[in-house]
Amino acid sequence: MNVLSLPTSLDHRSMDRILDETVSVETERVLFDARHVRWADPNGMVALLCAGRATVARTGRSAHFRIPENSDTTGYMARMGFFRAAESLFEFDQRPPRRPSGDTPVLLEIMPITTNTDVHEVVERVQGSAGEILSRTLNYPATAVVPFSVILSEVCQNILEHAEAPGWVAAQVYNWKKRLGRHVLVLAVADMGRGFKASLTDEHSARFGDRWSDATALEAAFMHGVTRFPDSHRGQGIQQIRKQVGRWNGALSIRSGTARIAAVPDWDDQPPLLQNLAAFPGSQISILLPARVPETAAEVGANA
């Protein structure tokens, strides 16, 4: 049996490692050892689900999963809906907590995206919680819930329209006190579908010739809004998401296959383009939205 020891922190910085190591496993039996995990955010949990599904697809059987020893961590993962989403992908070494512990409000627990109706459900679900979190915790205008909902809708549709396979979405707000001194909203969307390169190959690969790769496919979609549809009016989703995330000084990154591309704000240190990652199926989108820094003394006073 091959054992994948998961890092103590499952987040946007460790998700590539999880995906890469999953691809490198060649044995039939796989154990995801999460005993030492102390922290998991939407990117980490959704990446784990992708890793689980990739393992099932390769071996035809569920991977073993040792749940975290820390009860706060398992309680939080239950609260985010991880174990419910993962039960068909992993065999847990012990019964995971059914009832979530703590009363941490969740912006958007892990939800599967398999149909158009799921996207409506996601948009509807955040209407109650997102407005208050965006305005009170992130200091965004009260109206920000609308563009945030549009981002959610577009990233989830990316799964349905381009991946042609189911995926997951999750979002939560955290206090990045040490790292940034501010709260940050973390939104993760991932699927196990065709990925950008396969989706765009028929329409666009000829123009790139030998340069056609996961990286050039991501650049074409990310920078120029190309899609697999011959209709030149399509392809606004990713472009508009990038624009709106930029307005909020956020970070947007997309991994597909062996590459990851990112729009990187000044507070973030991830590289704008990573290549030569392991060939993991599908696409994984990460959006980080930091709290807005009050600009005027009046605003500072109001937030004090």
Binding site: S149, S153, E154, R234, Q236
Partner: peptide, 8 residues
Amino acid sequence: ILDYSCAD
């Protein structure tokens, strides 16, 4: 909520 796909 009106997203870009529906505006299109």
